[in-house]
């Protein structure tokens, strides 16, 4: 008897769970499936101390992510990417402890973030343009390579990173699983190495989002 009740409760839990899942799916699956993948080309402008170190806009970057919509307007996900900063100085003299070094410096920094994201979309998924705001929190791999002539000062480390982002998704047709994506994000990391006292950049992304399931 007791065993039968337990069995019944188990079945009820199962049905409730399935129903809940289906309800969530149905709510968002009306327009497009909840799981999406995005890939973007990125341009980044260094700010502050990074600008002093490597004063050149980076056109070598990309970003990719996976996102799951919990509701019509709220999604969670992960994202990663790559950005390469590169700047070559004219020959200059740099003081050292007991002397000086004259060198052409090539200052590079490669950043690979790995962030957990939460996104809020300001419209329902059937809108023609879907503006959103998101926040990414996580870590970033900082690969610092400063060349003195052909000789390099190297450091590789992981740092905390925060990236708020504002963007728009434009579906290719009302219920299309494929969307055009454009966004602007700010990246901050309390990264300290030599002349870099903290890391901040502003980044523009353009690419595609594809709802796969």
């Amino acid at each position: 008897m007791k065993r039968n009740i337990m069995k019944l409760i188990n079945v009820k839990i199962w049905i409730l769970a399935i129903a809940a899942c289906l309800a969530v799916q149905a709510a968002s699956a009306q327009v497009r499936p909840p799981l999406s993948f995005n890939f973007n080309y990125s341009i980044a402008q260094p700010l502050g101390a990074v600008k002093n170190y490597s004063d050149k806009t980076s056109f070598r970057g990309w970003q990719a992510g996976l996102q799951y919509m919990l509701t019509d307007q709220v999604g969670v996900g992960i994202k990663s990417g790559f950005q390469d900063f590169y700047y070559r100085t004219p020959r200059a003299v740099y003081p050292t402890k007991s002397g000086d070094i004259s060198a052409v410096q090539t200052r590079t920094l490669q950043v690979i973030p790995v962030l957990a994201t939460v996104q809020y979309q300001f419209t329902k998924p059937d809108a023609v343009v879907i503006p959103y705001a998101s926040l990414g929190l996580g870590v970033a791999n900082m690969n610092y390579e400063k060349y003195w002539g052909m000789f390099v000062d190297k450091d590789n480390s992981w740092q905390f990173m925060a990236s708020p982002e504002l963007g728009i998704n434009i579906p290719f047709g009302k219920a299309s699983p494929l969307l055009f994506n454009a966004s602007v994000q700010y990246n901050y990391s309390p990264y300290k190495l030599a002349e870099i006292t903290n890391f901040s950049t502003i980044q523009g992304n353009i690419g595609l989002r594809w709802h796969i399931n």
Partner: peptide, 11 residues
């Protein structure tokens, strides 16, 4: 030329 560095040290 760019690859070269001139290092000076003194007492």
């Amino acid at each position: 030329e760019e690859s070269q560095i001139y290092i000076t040290n003194r007492d």
